[in-house]
């Protein structure tokens, strides 16, 4: 049985008259962490928008398992098992942390037993959510917010989690906690796809790496091999080529 969770084949997508993704291919295995790097405008965020249904691919296919998901609306894709933790603040600041978490289970709100089970699961994984349940989410620090955002995304027990810049704006201690959580998700069999400007951190965290340029995959492989690639090292890690 194939263990591939998501496949993109020859995807072309863009805004207005222009194409951002120009024949994008991608395959993500179960339980892996894949980090996409690339210069601004390479199409990293567009990959996320296509997978989460915010942007429809003009050609090519996007499959979750065997199911074609290109063209489904974002709520259907969410229910199918793809959750997203965006780069910008996505919490509801004037609502309690508990309500923020519950809203992550909005799509399963009618199944009370399942909702309770998932809440307990996430609370066990991220104790902060239980400890500060009644506080407003707006009172949390950047790192704590990111933890709640991840917890909220886990409420639907997604098979694939998309994370846009998970370390952005966080202090080193919070980055370590978030990294631990991401590794924990993968260890449980979830697939994580992340975009990270901090290439060093991204490749350290990931099992696989993808370098994108002009809407296509330029390089793909084990994260360690990508990080050690002289060209990548020189472009993104500040090392001289060949060192």
């Amino acid at each position: 049985m194939s263990d591939i969770v998501l496949t993109m084949t020859g995807v072309e997508a863009g805004y207005g008259g222009g194409l951002v993704l120009q024949g994008m291919d991608l395959a993500l295995d179960r339980g892996t962490i894949t980090c996409i790097v690339g210069p601004n405008g390479a199409g990293k965020s567009t990959v996320f928008r296509v997978i989460s249904g915010l942007l429809k691919a003009r050609s090519g296919s996007v499959k979750l398992g065997e199911r074609e998901i290109n063209g489904l609306d974002p709520a259907e894709i969410l229910r199918a098992g793809i959750a997203q933790v965006p780069q910008n603040r996505a919490l509801f600041p004037e609502m309690s942390i508990r309500d923020n978490l519950l809203l992550g289970g909005y799509a399963i709100r009618r199944d009370k037993a399942l909702l309770k089970k998932r809440t307990a699961m996430v609370e066990e994984m991220i104790p902060l959510i239980k400890e500060r349940a009644s506080e407003h989410a707006g009172n949390l620090s950047g790192g704590q917010r990111r933890m709640v955002e991840i917890g909220r995304a886990l409420m639907l027990d997604p098979s694939l989690v998309l994370m846009d810049e998970p370390s952005l704006g966080l202090d080193p201690k919070s980055v370590a906690k978030v990294a631990e959580l991401i590794r924990g998700m993968a260890a449980e069999g979830r697939t994580v796809l992340l975009v990270e400007q901090n290439v060093r951190l991204g490749m350290h965290l990931a099992t696989h790496g993808i370098v994108m340029e002009q809407g296509q995959v330029r390089l793909t492989g084990d994260a360690k091999d990508i990080a050690d690639n002289p060209e990548v090292a020189s472009m993104y890690l500040g090392k001289a080529s060949g060192t």
Binding site: P74, L78, F92, L103, A107
Partner: peptide, 8 residues
């Protein structure tokens, strides 16, 4: 945007 992300 946060609401759309949770399926509202």
């Amino acid at each position: 945007e946060g609401a759309a992300l949770v399926g509202i």
